[in-house]
Amino acid sequence: MTKDKFLQQLEAELKRLSPVERADILLDYEEHFLFGLEEGKSEEAIAGALGSPSQIAKEILAGYHVKRASANLSAESVIRAAWAVIGLSFFNLVIVLGPALGVAGVILAGWAVSLTFLASPLLVVVEWLFYPDGFMLFDLFVSIGMCGIGILLGMVMLYVTKALKKALIGYLKYNVSLVKGGLRHDN
């Protein structure tokens, strides 16, 4: 491969870089040819030792991408992150909020029922204080039964709440990663 052909190919492969950066890179290789020619090597031999232009371009572009990604706050990536936030808020408001409120309501109701059942023997005691003459054995048994159900329900609610808390945290983390992805992702 001749010097001109090598440089042309390299230039074509580096199209994605800015003209200034590209010219700077090409200058390095052009100089390399000049030094080699000075030592009496042929253009073909120099180009052969350099390796293929497309391989070189790949290595250069790889370094370039890493650089951009670690710079992290290019205007483009900030805009992408902003869009991620807007899109997410909309999605959360319209699609996630309704079911989430529904589920929260069910949990609240479950806890309320469980606590009320648990407290029912107490109500029997209160009833006895006000109407000491009434027949209360039936009330007492029913209330003890309800108390048992309340304990069971409370245990179930404990598990359900824990699981949902985990799901909520997972979902929030996913939101954060989406927004961060908008900042980081650069292709």
Binding site: I25, D28, H32, L50, I56, I60
Partner: peptide, 28 residues
């Protein structure tokens, strides 16, 4: 640059062209 490339390629078998991207990256 050329000096570095020649020195390295005299010891290690590489495509000489791959030194310049490294020089560039380390400069950046």
């Amino acid at each position: 640059g050329y000096e570095l490339v020649q020195k390295i390629s005299s010891q290690i078998e590489i495509s000489e062209g791959s030194i310049y991207p490294i020089l560039r990256r380390l400069t950046n």
